[in-house]
Amino acid sequence: MTITHQFDYIKAKSVAHACKLLSKKGDHRLLSGGTDLIGHIKENLATPDSLIDLKGIDALKHLSVTPSTIKIGALCTFSDLLNSKEMAKYFPAVQEMAQTVASVAVRNRATVVGNICSAVPSLDSAPLLLTYDAVVCVVSSKGVRKVPINQWFISSRQSAIRKGELVCAIEIKMPAQKHGATFVKLGRYRGEDLAQASVAVVALPRDRYRIAFGAVAPTPFRADQLEKLLNGKQLTDNLVGQAVTLIPSLVSPITDIRATKEYRTHMCQVMFERAVETAVARLR
């Protein structure tokens, strides 16, 4: 497939430069990994006037770690997550998630920030970022704003980003205490498949839980009602059973080429049960 659409290509020199280019009239898109965007341009789903390549901006590269936060820069790829010692130490479940993203050659290129900017319902990084209360750092020529991740996903393929803005990083607070976490994804085969359903569970001491689902609603979401049900109670088979019966009323999956809504709903229940078990076992 040759790209028929014509556009300009500009390599941004700095974040300020990128913001300036973005604020010009027209459809300007930011380019980092391009694994989504180039595909969209090929299929004429995106017809930008220009692409602003961020890859030359050092300030957006890699992961930075402070005692209080871990910051995933806009150019940080899924492979960078997998290669990070800090991720391995503090957020092994994030690596577990990164490992499920497409294939090595895509992980080497695709960025986490690009993933949340796509805002597709099935995006792999969302459920864990939701359970960790990540914060999205956005800049524009007007300044910086921080958006909590649970306010980031507005609807399918639509995030809270505004025209002229650029996501420079995702911040995750360092865990204040020991926790157990897991990410479970349902796909048809290893390689390139999108999630049909996914769930992230974080288990904290004193019977507290954070739970999020992906690919089974217009946006990935935190399952507040499940958390409310489980929090503060001792985890018994009975309690988990109650949670499982609640799940069909919380998810609203669609039927498409990859799976039916009934199957997705059923699998959410199965995966939730397994994820809670794993997260709790990891807390110990």
Binding site: G34, T35, I38, G39, R109
Partner: peptide, 23 residues
């Protein structure tokens, strides 16, 4: 030519990437 099959894979700065998804 849409990133699914892998036969266009090359090494870019030592890392494998799909060259059909790179300009």
């Amino acid at each position: 030519e849409r990133g699914d099959c892998g036969t266009c894979t090359i090494l870019l700065d030592g890392k494998s990437i799909k060259s059909c998804l790179v300009l």
